[in-house]
Amino acid sequence: MRVKYIKIDSPENVSYKINWQRPFSDFPLIQGKNYTVYAIEYTDERKINFFLLDEGGNIYPSNYPSEFFEISDPCMSKYWERTNDNQLYPIQNPIYPNIITFKEWKINKYFEEDMFEGINGANDIFQSYKKLIDNEYPDESLDSAIIMEENWILCPICNNAFENLSREGIISCANCKARLNNPCWID
């Protein structure tokens, strides 16, 4: 799932509670930029937060109020644990409080704190899922590899041909390591 950070009218009227209580004017986000969502939080106050990696340089995601974003790709990750079979956001009749994310985070209510403190291997677990989630769906901002025959594709950046057995949305060129949309992607 991807969301775009947008300018909203009257942001000071958005009531939100995020762990670090940063004012909206100091969010380390770029307006108009798409961000990958790694978790969706439904709070006790019936608010919705998106966890994403911002421009602050942290290796773990931070939560932001959903009001500051528009959905650019509603496909939820296949790696997330959820209570229904819905593959697209928004979810009808969500359960509050709840978090939709990968298993290790969902079952450990302290996982977010563990990432923040860098303990219990939480950041290693997150980084493993980050790689999977980042490459799960094609990204319209990337070039697409070119199908040559069967499982062989061509990188449009360096013109290297390589075998591709992946069915994920994004692959890396075997030569130049460029991230490319996978023309063999299967949803």
Rank of each mutant, 00 (worst) to 15 (best):
D139W: 05
F50R: 01
E112P: 01
D9T: 12
Q31N: 11
K4D: 11
N98M: 00
P11H: 07
N98F: 03
P65F: 04
Q92A: 13
I171K: 01
E45I: 06
I18Q: 14
E150H: 13
Y42P: 02
S141L: 12
K47P: 07
V14S: 04
A39Q: 03
S128N: 15
P94I: 06
I146R: 09
F111Y: 05
I100M: 09
L180F: 05
Q92L: 10
P11G: 06
E112L: 08
K4H: 02
E55V: 13
N19I: 06
M1D: 02
Q92Y: 12
K17T: 12
N86W: 03
K33V: 08
P90E: 05
F116M: 14
Y96V: 05
F69S: 01
L132A: 10
I153S: 00
S66V: 11
N86R: 13
D114R: 06
E104Y: 00
W80F: 15
G118C: 08
F126H: 00
S144Q: 11
E149K: 14
I171H: 08
F50D: 02
D187G: 07
W152K: 14
I40Y: 03
V37E: 02
N84A: 10
S25M: 13
S144F: 05
R167Y: 15
F116R: 15
K78M: 03
I186V: 10
R179Y: 12
V3W: 03
S62W: 00
A161F: 05
D85Y: 08
L132Y: 10
N164L: 13
Q87I: 11
L154Y: 06
Y5I: 08
D85P: 09
P183I: 00
N34R: 10
Y38D: 04
K4G: 02
N58Y: 07
E136N: 07
S66K: 11
I146D: 04
A145T: 04
I170K: 13
E150N: 14
D187H: 09
E113L: 13
I91H: 01
P61Q: 06
Q87R: 13
E136H: 02
I59A: 12
F68V: 02
I125Q: 09
K130Q: 14
F162L: 00
A39H: 01
K131G: 03
Q127N: 14
Y16A: 09
E70W: 07
I133S: 08
A122L: 03
C75T: 14
T83W: 12
G32Q: 00
D124T: 10
D134S: 01
K106W: 10
L52A: 03
F24K: 01
L142E: 07
